[in-house]
């Protein structure tokens, strides 16, 4: 066990945990932030995506010891009132079916749009290819990403 000071969703969190513990389980079990989902544990499905700094990472493969002082943002901290353009676009397009993978999809999409605010369809597909949705909402996810991009450029 070791002590860590983490910056999660803008809050400083102190915890004593095994250094190998993936952030996924630190978030879910220790910090009770259960919006980040477990899907595969081997970085194949994207359900556990969070932001480390500005980058989308798979928290199941991110040991707590590797985080250091970098900002960790989870779905709970993406916006204060659930009104990030990507969240609003998801609501507008009513994207989800079961909804389980969508936090990961949203976190991946929001990091991607920061680097590419006006993506083509192919760029969206490539960026989102690591996030699986068994319900098959891919076409709506793509539409929502375009909606988010359009609303962001309108407000820019």
């Amino acid at each position: 066990m070791a002590n860590f000071t983490l910056n999660v969703n803008g809050k400083t969190q102190e915890l004593d945990v095994d250094p190998s513990t993936p952030m996924l389980w630190v978030l879910r079990d220790h910090l009770k932030l259960v919006g980040t989902k477990y899907g595969c544990g081997i970085a194949q499905c994207g359900a556990c995506t969070v932001h480390l700094g500005d980058n989308a990472v798979r928290s199941c493969q991110l040991p707590v010891s590797a985080v250091g002082e970098q900002r960790v943002t989870t779905i709970e901290g993406l916006s204060e009132n659930g009104d990030h353009p990507v969240q609003e676009a998801w609501l507008k397009e009513d994207v989800y079916q079961c909804g389980y993978c969508q936090a990961g999809q949203i976190m991946n999409a929001s990091a991607f749009l920061k680097t590419n605010p006006n993506p083509t369809d192919t760029e969206i597909e490539t960026a989102m290819n690591g996030n699986i949705c068994r319900c098959g909402t891919y076409t709506r996810i793509k539409r929502a990403i375009k909606t988010a991009a359009a609303s962001a450029s309108e407000n820019a």
């Binding site: 259960v34 779905i75 993406l78 659930g82 009513d94 909804g99 949203i106």
Partner: peptide
């Protein structure tokens, strides 16, 4: 008439909804 998913807001903000989220 089309009505939005009643759990939509909770889904996009990561609220506990699923079995695995139970604490």
């Amino acid at each position: 008439t089309s009505r939005k998913n009643v759990d939509g807001q909770k889904i996009v903000t990561g609220k506990p909804l699923f079995g695995l989220d139970i604490q």
